[in-house]
Amino acid sequence: MSGTVRVVLVENHQMVRVGLKEMLAEYPTIRVVGEAEDAPEALRIAESLAPDVVLSEVRLGSTSGLELCHDLLTWCADARVIMLTVHDDEQYLSQAMHAGARGYLLKHISGEELVAAIHRVHAGELVVTTTAGHEASTVTRIESGEYWPGGRFGLTLRESEVLSLIVIGMNNHAIAGHLIVGEETVRTHVRAIYRKLEVNDRTSALAKALREGLFQ
């Protein structure tokens, strides 16, 4: 890592924002040049300061970090956006990547990991952390345009979730209980999975999911 990366912090909780600023101040290669508590303020600051990286929470009270990411990159195309969030959620991750974010990090990471991620994103990499520990495969899927397992086959996020439960051996009744939906809803998802994977039964769907490396 070399050079100083200019960062703007976007976080609606003041204590968190102050803590992040103080933590990053310990690293000479990172300089926090601005901070905001919502999307409109963040846009004004970013347009004025032209930071290298914008570090934002996904949810900013009444505003959205996802919308901020899209709007920010419209006006400040050279900025790199990293979502730093408590939400370990595939849907948020997918939406963030669609909006143009280059990082999706969970707040449990250490200061050293955060700084390393900022430098990697500034250098052009895509960086993701997940509690499941499948960062490498997640990044590979995102870079290929597959935002969740099975996306390249046309599976929706919910269908991917149902397939993951099939893979671990759950029957329709157990899946319905796990997802808190009716069994008929599960059967509808399973039929869609069969059609999209071009298989005729549960065993074939399981085999194809494993053969294609959809789940680790």
Rank of each mutant, 00 (worst) to 15 (best):
L106R: 10
L84N: 08
G111T: 07
T140D: 14
I142F: 15
S137D: 09
H108Q: 11
V86N: 07
V121P: 04
M97C: 13
R120C: 00
V139M: 05
E143P: 00
L114F: 06
K107H: 02
S94L: 01
A96N: 01
K107T: 06
E125F: 10
R120E: 07
A132W: 02
M83V: 13
A101Q: 09
V115M: 08
A123P: 01
E143T: 01
T138R: 15
T129K: 11
L106K: 11
A132R: 03
G111P: 08
L126D: 13
G133H: 01
G100V: 00
D88R: 08
E113K: 10
E90H: 13
T85A: 05
A116H: 09
E135D: 14
I142W: 15
E125V: 08
V81N: 00
H98Y: 03
E112I: 08
D78P: 00
S137V: 05
S110N: 05
E143G: 01
V128I: 13
T85P: 05
E135H: 09
G100R: 03
R80I: 04
E90G: 07
V86I: 13
A99C: 10
T131V: 02
E112Y: 12
V86W: 15
E113M: 11
I118G: 09
L84H: 13
H98E: 11
A79L: 08
S137C: 04
L106W: 11
T140E: 15
I118E: 06
A136N: 07
A132P: 01
D78Q: 14
L106M: 12
E112P: 00
E90P: 15
A96W: 04
V81I: 02
V139W: 10
A117K: 02
I142C: 14
T140F: 08
S94M: 02
G124Y: 03
R120I: 06
R120T: 00
T85M: 03
